[in-house]
Simulated scan of single mutants.
Amino acid sequence: MIVPKFGIGTFRLTGQTVIDSVKNALDAGYRAVDTAQIYGNEAEVGQAIAESAVPRSELFLTTKIWVDHYAADKLIPSLKESLNKLRTEAVDLTLIHWPAPKMAVDIPVLMQTLLEAKKQGLTQHIGISNFNIALTQQAIDSIGAEHIAANQIELSPYLQNEKLASYLKAQNIDITSYMTLAYGKVLNDPLLNEIAGHHQASAAQIALAWALQKGYSVIPSSTQHEHLQANLKAQDIQLNADEMQAIAALERNGREVNPENLAPEWD
């Protein structure tokens, strides 16, 4: 895998909150940080990394290009601006944030421009986010699967997206799961709490362990030091086959994020 298994997400975190969250995460042992242009926090993330004791060379830093910058003459300048905010010469992974089919986005041109950014040394790896099978195939047809490191998609025990996940695995494209806790909805799930009891764990840890055992990377966000450390411990939990099968039965297509103009037709 190219993408580290465990990272800190920064969606919806701004100002001092995101600075503290990233610093605390790095102190706790996280070495991957996920941000995006539209989060409006790249400068704060860059500040937190600069002020931490962890050298940049030990971190895996991901950002995402926003739809306003998809034009061939805007993408690379916008990424350079992101690098400036993040205080780094290159990020480790740059993703196309949404395919935005209703905005008539030209996926082949978009991917070729992103590949050019990689060739210029602005990003170590490139990838996509929120792409369905058909649009991922367009991206592959444009630049080759070997250049697409990851697809970051919403996945949780309530939205398991097996068809898309299986397709991505067959293409050797890493899967990053976001919203793995379904905005916290899984925390009160009776089954997850029952399984958690067997492992002296929390429902959150069980949901994260489920995703990790499926082979996905996870990027939960938290502002609490104890939650950051607790989330990391999900890596030590081994769910048995019966438990994984029981969690599979929680599937209910419970999608939390579905912006009308940006989302594709989901598989």
Rank of each mutant, 00 (worst) to 15 (best):
I2F: 01
G7Y: 06
I8P: 03
I8M: 06
G9K: 08
Q16V: 04
V18F: 02
I19R: 12
D20H: 02
N24G: 14
A25Q: 12
Y30F: 12
R31K: 15
A32D: 06
V33E: 05
D34F: 09
T35G: 09
Y39W: 05
G40S: 07
N41M: 08
E44W: 01
V45Y: 02
Q47H: 01
S57G: 05
S57W: 02
L59P: 02
F60H: 09
L61Y: 01
W66R: 03
P77T: 01
E81Y: 06
L83Y: 11
L86T: 05
H97W: 05
M103P: 04
V105E: 01
D106V: 07
M111Y: 14
Q112F: 04
L115S: 12
K118C: 04
K119Q: 14
Q120D: 06
T123N: 08
H125K: 06
S129E: 09
N130V: 13
F131M: 13
L135A: 02
Q138G: 01
I153P: 08
E154P: 09
E154Y: 03
Q160H: 06
N161V: 11
E162C: 03
K169L: 13
Q171A: 14
I175S: 05
T176I: 15
S177W: 03
Y178I: 13
T180M: 08
G184S: 05
K185S: 14
P190L: 11
L191I: 13
L191N: 12
N193F: 04
E194C: 01
H198V: 00
Q200V: 00
A209T: 00
A211L: 04
A211M: 07
Q213C: 04
I219L: 13
H225Q: 14
H225R: 14
H227D: 08
L228E: 07
Q229L: 13
A230K: 12
A234C: 11
L239E: 07
E243L: 08
E243P: 10
M244V: 05
Q245R: 14
Q245Y: 03
E251T: 00
R252V: 03
N253I: 04
N253H: 13
E256N: 12
E260C: 00
L262I: 11
L262C: 06
L262R: 04
